[in-house]
Computed example of a mutant assay.
Amino acid sequence: MTATTNTARLMPDIASQADADNAGPLDWVGMDEIAVPIRIADADGVLVQSPARVAAHVNLNQAEARGIHMSRLYLHVDQHLSREPLSPCSLRRLLRDFLESHADLSDRARISVRFDHMVRRPALASDNSGWKTYPVVINASMHDGAFAFELETEILYSSTCPCSAALARQLIQEQFANDFADDRPIDRAAVLEWLGSESGICATPHSQRSSARVRVRLGNGFEFPIIDLIDLIEGALQTPVQTAVKREDEQAFALLNGQNLMFCEDAARRMRNALDHDERIVDFWVRASHLESLHPHDAVAYATKGIDGGFVA
């Protein structure tokens, strides 16, 4: 057998060659849609693995440099997220490695991690439960040693229009006046029967599936309060969509909708008030979108805390 020598070859490195005609710094350079599994603690502290999509970037502040080291970003993402659970500390270390591996090119780094977080939710009235999926985005950045991170999610809920409810009540009153003349004595049993008939509910307010998109900036020293944030928003809105639904659950949901009539403006204010009282949240941005059943366009409202020129609507 003939022995062969495995000699390292000198391969061309085009990226190291300057392009004087196209020189200049760039705000961000990196990779999007990196597929990687992440592990994150659930409400009980149990680590849950989820498929994620990651965007990793650094700035390019050396005008004459042709490009960054893309492979270094990818390898750092793979090594860090495979080795340890996702947390503010792990992201801080990852961003620090981005910058150390690009010390001659960059002084800012950022990462975005997108995944679906599944939570088992009990039914409103029955003994059943089911799974709900919440899309989550975690953004982190580092500049001049300062680390910042944000948490974003979207929550689906039901909204019943207060104006439509008032108009429906007016029609029900008019129907009652027609069915029970002034010169006739009111019989309680007849009224109860009427209320349970289609004549008694001759009009219903319109309601629709709605979306609450929430982005919060968290203070240092806190973990990712994903479930706490979801619970906070669902508690403020009171009508989150359900999973397992029996008749008693549907009736309970109808009651919640009737007790929580809201325009998109009302929903945005409810969320703002809830977030304003959470000490972990430094800044926030919320959008309430009511996907109207009355017309083909959406009704939307935005609210922010806007600390030091932070999030803008």
Rank of each mutant, 00 (worst) to 15 (best):
E100M: 09
D104E: 15
N59R: 08
L75Q: 14
S112M: 10
R110P: 04
L99N: 05
H102I: 01
R120E: 15
L60N: 00
A63I: 07
D78C: 05
R114M: 08
Q62N: 13
I111Y: 05
P85A: 14
S71M: 09
D78Y: 12
P88K: 02
D116F: 13
R72Q: 10
A63N: 10
C89Q: 06
L105W: 07
R114V: 02
C89F: 04
I111T: 06
R110L: 12
N61K: 14
L81C: 08
H76E: 13
Q62Y: 00
P85I: 08
V58W: 01
Q79G: 03
S82L: 01
S90L: 03
R96G: 13
N61D: 14
L99V: 07
R108C: 09
L91N: 04
D78V: 14
H76S: 13
A125K: 14
L73F: 06
R72Y: 11
D107F: 07
S87P: 07
S87L: 06
A103R: 13
R110C: 12
L99A: 05
L60Q: 02
V58A: 01
A109Q: 04
L60C: 01
F98G: 06
M118I: 12
S82Q: 03
D104M: 10
D107N: 15
R96F: 06
L73K: 02
I111H: 04
G67Y: 05
A103S: 15
R108T: 12
R96Y: 05
E84K: 07
M70R: 02
H69N: 12
P122H: 11
L60V: 01
A63P: 09
E64T: 08
E84G: 00
Q62P: 00
S71A: 15
S82W: 00
Y74T: 03
A63C: 09
L73P: 01
V113E: 02
V119F: 07
S101A: 14
R120N: 13
R92H: 15
M70H: 04
H80V: 15
R120P: 00
R121M: 13
D104R: 11
V77K: 02
H117K: 15
P85W: 10
A109D: 05
N59E: 10
V58I: 09
V58F: 03
A123T: 09
R66M: 06
S82F: 01
R121K: 14
H117D: 09
L95A: 07
R108W: 08
R72I: 04
D97C: 08
L105M: 08
E84D: 11
S126W: 11
L73R: 02
L75A: 12
Y74H: 14
H117M: 12
V58G: 00
N59M: 09
S90I: 02
F115K: 08
R92K: 14
P88M: 03
R66S: 05
F115V: 07
M118W: 08
P85L: 10
A103K: 10
V113K: 02
A125C: 11
M118C: 13
L91W: 07
D78E: 14
A63Y: 10
R83G: 09
F115S: 08
H69W: 07
H76W: 04
E100R: 11
R110M: 14
H80L: 08
